[in-house]
């Protein structure tokens, strides 16, 4: 997994609440069995005209000033709905490394970390000010994960909270599997105990 330390990039504002993962990548684009191949489906129902191929110049991602955007700012409850990790994969493949929102849906929030995307939660008033600064000072922000700060082009800086365990994983670009396998003895001890408490959860193969 790609690590995330500092990032300086163009910001695209998608100022809607309740953007769901069907919006982020419609189901018809989910059929790759690999982790790649999803960027074309990103916002597949919004990015294209009715022919499904021609970019819609009215959609915010397609406007010239946001070309090459790598930070997305949204409103509340971003990523609700389906658990599809294809949503952060598609965002990542398009080039989005950080999403700033008032709130995230639970599964999407976890999927972001597991896909190398940093989700940042700020309150509505902070996001209002940040979005205003896009027009006045330009759509370019700097994110510093070790310092837990987001700095706008006008120099205003905002600190954000992050779970320390997830921060370490993202900084190192590590997923959790190796960590959990390192604690396998705990799992095996649990299984030995649990087998006595609830033997129906451990049927023998012949049963």
């Amino acid at each position: 997994m790609e690590s995330f330390v500092q990032h300086d990039g163009i910001v695209v504002p998608l100022l809607r609440s309740n953007v769901n993962t069907d919006d982020i990548i419609p189901a018809r684009f989910l059929k790759s069995v690999r982790r790649t191949g999803f960027a074309a489906g990103l916002f597949g129902n919004w990015r294209y005209l009715a022919d499904g191929r021609t970019l819609d110049p009215g959609f915010v991602l397609n406007r010239p000033q946001y070309a090459g955007a790598s930070i997305l700012v949204a409103r509340d409850n971003f990523g609700c709905g389906s658990s599809r990790e294809h949503a952060p994969w598609a965002l990542n493949e398009y080039g989005i490394r950080c999403i700033v929102a008032i709130g995230f849906a639970d599964i999407f929030h976890t999927n972001c970390f597991n896909s190398g995307i940093l989700p940042i939660t700020l309150d509505a008033a902070q996001i209002d000010v940040l979005v205003k600064s896009l027009d006045s000072s330009g759509p370019r922000w700097r994110v510093d994960l070790p310092a837990q700060t987001l700095t706008a082009a006008d120099g205003n800086s905002y600190s954000f909270a992050i779970d320390p365990f997830k921060k370490r994983s993202l900084l190192a670009g590590l997923d959790n599997i190796d960590w959990s396998l390192a604690h396998r003895s705990d799992t095996l001890a649990y299984e030995r105990r649990r087998r006595n408490e609830a033997p129906w959860l451990f049927p023998t193969p012949t049963e």
Partner: peptide, 22 residues
Amino acid sequence: VGIGTSEVEHVLATQCLLQHKP
């Protein structure tokens, strides 16, 4: 609980899910 594909892999490999208590 519904999970993402990275977590599917994690549960397949470890039989565990890493999650803060909701």
